[in-house]
Amino acid sequence: MEFSPFNAVVKLCLQGMSLEEKNEPEEACKMFMQGWSEATNDLEKFLAAHYISRHQKTVSDRLEWLNTTLKYALKINDDTVKTALPGLYVNIAKCYEDLSDMEKSDEYSKRASLCRDHPSDKGPFYHGTKADLKVGDLLIAGGDSNYQSDLKMNHIYFTALPNGAGLAAALARGNGQERVYIVEPTGDFENDPNVTDKKFPGNPTRSYRSQFPLKIVGELTDWVKPDPEDLQKFRDKLGDNEGQIIN
């Protein structure tokens, strides 16, 4: 499954998070439980279980849901969830500590320390834009942010999800045709800190950034364009977001 903010279970989780922000934990938990009951694949179950775990009233119940989250993370075993593992192991270790099982607590603390936050994603990678470019061109940092008009970006951003790049193209400034280019990083890159372990655990959008140029090696034409109504809701949500971009 490719992560999408328009997925039905993801929408339920977003509604639950909104209720959390309004200090309505019981209603939020209902949304997450509905997401769990409607989940049909490992990623949806991973996401729903993650949010359910933080609404448990006992340590034992929290541990049970954290272990459920971990089970699905390990089943998925890809770059959408790997960056969530350190925090997940830390939370499980804390539960065992609270239950006075120090052997288990130490075990999961060691697992957390062994996890590395260096992307292992091998791509292929994509960049969405309205610019008319050609194979061999380089995309470089220093452009204007699509989300904060007065901000020059210190990195160039890309993703391993074709439809995610398509969404970025739809949100990009300008009136040109929406394009999704296949790109190759020319240097080191990192998880995008603006999305990694923020609202969602791990890096489900497989979003990355680099201070080195991206080389265009092709163009993708069969990506799925977001529904206009969903896209407008997404734009509205971005407009209401008062958070600062990590640049």
Rank of each mutant, 00 (worst) to 15 (best):
S4E: 09
V9Q: 09
V9D: 07
L14V: 09
G16P: 04
G16Y: 03
M17K: 15
M17L: 13
M17I: 13
E21I: 04
N23K: 08
N23Q: 10
P25W: 00
A28C: 11
C29R: 01
M33Y: 08
S37A: 10
S37W: 05
L43S: 03
L43M: 13
K45W: 05
K45E: 03
F46A: 01
L47F: 06
A48I: 07
I52F: 01
S53K: 05
H55E: 00
Q56T: 08
Q56M: 15
Q56G: 04
K57D: 14
T58K: 13
T58R: 10
V59G: 07
L63D: 03
N67L: 15
T80S: 15
T80N: 03
A84F: 13
L85T: 02
L85K: 01
N91G: 09
A93F: 04
C95W: 01
D98A: 10
S100V: 01
D101G: 06
D106A: 14
E107I: 04
S109R: 15
R111I: 01
S113L: 14
L114N: 15
C115A: 11
S120V: 08
F125R: 03
Y126Q: 03
Y126F: 15
Y126W: 05
D132L: 12
K134I: 09
D137Y: 04
D137S: 13
A141N: 10
G143E: 12
S145P: 10
N146C: 15
N146T: 12
Q148H: 10
Q148R: 14
S149A: 14
L151K: 14
K152P: 03
K152T: 12
Y157T: 07
T159N: 08
A160T: 07
A160P: 07
G164M: 09
A165G: 04
A165S: 10
Q177D: 12
R179K: 13
T186E: 03
G187I: 07
G187S: 13
F189E: 00
N191M: 07
D192E: 11
P193W: 00
K199V: 10
G202D: 08
G202E: 07
N203Y: 02
P204C: 06
P204N: 07
Y208F: 13
Y208K: 03
R209P: 03
R209Y: 08
F212W: 06
P213Q: 02
L214A: 03
K215V: 06
K215P: 05
V217F: 14
G218M: 08
T221M: 06
D222A: 11
V224N: 12
L238Y: 12
D240G: 09
N241F: 15
Q244E: 14
